[in-house]
Amino acid sequence: MNKEKYLHKVIKYLSCSKKDKKRIYEDLSADIDEAMENGESWQEIEIRFGDPKDLAGELMENMDVDTKSKHKNFWIGLICCVCIVVTIGFLVYKMFIPTTILLKDSTYFDYDEVHEKAMEVINYASNDDYEAIANIGIDEFKQDSVKKQLKDTMAMMKHGTFSKISSEQYVENSTLTSKYAAASITVMYEDNAITYTLAFDENLNLSAFYMK
């Protein structure tokens, strides 16, 4: 190993400021030059200096670099990073993955109001009144293409006269940024049964309507 390679190895093993690395490099380099001028060969100097890793370790030890404190700071930093990642993960989870509770347990929606609104929709659907459904829906429902889709779907579902509601379930779905009330209602008709899945936004506007 020549002088340059040796010095670069020493610098590589140092964990100190750039300023200290620069002056160590300069001083060791000048030291070696001076020793060679005094008749010492590079091989002799290399043996005297010892392994680059050991010389770097000796320099670090004498520079009072507080390795315990550095390790402590590293662990504190790592724990902070983990906490930040966990918090961000939790917020992202809350933002995009909805949590579901029974509507009766909701502190935001009034069960009776949602139930009344749902019954209104079922009434319109049972009478194939797609215009009325579109009118109580959010703006997207009022688009002609959506109205046509509603009309076609309802025309396909020939169900006959309303008989009874066989089951109904209400839940609240919420993310960090939004809440909505959802209802799953199965209606028995003269000819068949249809399960409606409805969703209402925070202002109780119909935001989703599915028939099965």
Partner: peptide, 12 residues
């Protein structure tokens, strides 16, 4: 003194 001891003293 060896280099590994002297230079840190000088820097301090």
């Amino acid at each position: 003194l060896k280099e590994g001891t002297l230079y840190p003293i000088l820097y301090r």
